[in-house]
Design a protein around this nucleic acid. Structure first.
Ligand SMILES: [Zn+2]
Length: 394
DNA sequence: CGCGTTTGACCGGCGC
DNA sequence: GCGCCGGTCAAACGCG
């Protein structure tokens, strides 16, 4: 579903906001189980959070009456045209409110879908190799400190609570293992992805003169998302950013595109690798043939860390996705999986380009009417500019 | 003074 | 068991 839309949006890269609206439509009607609804939440939370608590139906009454009643007194004195306009306005209001309600429902459905998917993944995982349970168990008790979010909490039938908890944790572990890595050619210390990150560590990589920096998301307290930023050893103009985990909070629009699509790609790939092809797991990585050098995605399904690598080094985003035709991957992938990856790649490309991110953020915020159009640009870099570049030896 | 980065310590996993 | 290694913690530090 999203493939064509994202092509359009990239083709419209250097045009105005008009097309960006289309791009937002693409994200809006995408219902493949990703958390796209969060985008609207992120953009609208500022102005709507006071409504969200009372949102379910009661709000509908209040808005309608407040809009209708007051002008209705005027309409009796004025022309029927104005009354018609007011009726239309009321109808619009009603539709808007209903839209909001439906969006919330869709959000919940997405959460349930995700939790179910996690459940299935864990079940299949156990079925295929039951030996993994022990390492998993030992693995994820080590840190549970930042939990408390997980909207995927609901499934859990009433069999055995302990086993359910185990399964749930296994699903979380599987998900936590899935990573999305983005290689982008960037002079900046970090590509702008619209999120706020706090550095919590830096280590010298083994065969790399450049250090590797560890960041954690600070957009919400307890957001489990982590990120590693590292400069390629041979080509220091290439930044490798690796994301891990799902955000537990709404994201700003610029971050929305990348995070949700990459997470979706991760989930899809993971489930796909579990179900469809055992051979996929056997291959260490599936590389795109070199003639697609402008935009290549590599899936590394080596056991502990299924990783999707989006290579954006040789391309400009516009030409890449329009030029890359269908057979980007070898056999084991379904077409919709390919589309997922393409979505992720393109979104990453968007996020890697600060200009487009800014334009997108501005356009979306202007559409929605949100007051804050800042979500990018301020996040372009981390506060101390030279911090990551220094080569700190011990 | 609060917050984010710096940076050595620390810790668990893994191979020998 | 030991040492390496990737990853994280947290005290110290710096900045506004
Ligand atoms: Zn986050």
């Amino acid at each position: 579903m999203g493939f064509d839309g994202i092509i359009m949006e990239n083709a419209a890269f250097d045009h105005g906001e008009k097309r960006v609206i289309y791009e937002m439509d693409f994200f809006a009607d995408k219902n493949d189980g990703t958390s796209n609804v969060e985008m609207f939440d992120a953009a609208e939370t500022e102005q709507e959070n006071h409504q969200q608590h009372i949102n379910t139906g009661l709000n509908l009454l209040t808005t309608n009456t407040s809009v209708i009643d007051k002008p209705k007194v005027d309409t009796t004195n004025r022309s029927p045209n104005s009354e018609f306009v007011l009726l239309m306005k009321a109808e619009l209001d009603r539709v808007n409110t209903e839209n909001e309600r439906l969006r919330e429902t869709l959000n919940q459905a997405n959460d349930k879908y995700h939790s179910l998917k996690m459940h299935i993944i864990s079940l299949l995982h156990h079925k295929q190799n039951p030996n993994d349970e022990a390492p998993n168990k030992s693995e994820h008790h080590h840190k549970k400190k930042i939990g408390a979010e997980s909207p995927e909490k609901m499934v859990e039938p009433e069999t055995d609570p302990e086993k359910d908890v185990d399964r749930h944790k296994a699903a979380e572990a599987v998900m936590k293992k899935a990573r999305v890595s983005v290689r982008a050619r960037s002079e900046a210390q970090m590509i702008s992805d619209g999120c706020q990150w706090r550095k919590y560590g830096q280590k010298m990589a083994k065969g790399n003169p450049c250090p590797r920096a560890y960041y954690r998301c600070t957009m919400a307290a307890g957001c489990p998302v982590r990120k590693q930023v590292q400069r390629c050893a041979e080509d220091q103009s290439v930044l490798i950013t690796t994301y891990e985990g799902r955000h537990s909070h709404p994201l700003p629009p610029a971050a929305m595109a990348m995070a949700s699509t990459t997470a979706a790609a991760a989930t899809t790939l993971l489930s796909g690798s579990m179900t469809s092809a055992d051979g996929l797991l056997m291959h260490n990585s599936i590389n795109v043939p070199p003639y697609y050098s402008q935009n290549l995605a590599t899936i590394s399904a080596s056991a502990p860390f299924p990783t999707i690598t989006l290579d954006l080094t040789n391309n400009n985003p516009a030409s890449a996705s329009t030029a890359a035709p269908q057979p980007m991957f070898h056999a084991p992938f379904q077409s919709h999986q390919t589309q997922e990856i393409m979505n992720a790649a393109t979104a990453a490309a968007i996020a890697a380009d600060p200009n487009f991110s800014a334009a997108l953020a501005a356009a979306i915020s202007s559409i929605i009417g949100s007051a804050r159009a800042n979500s990018d640009g301020s996040d372009d870099r981390i506060s101390s500019p030279e911090s990551n570049m220094r080569d700190i030896g011990k």
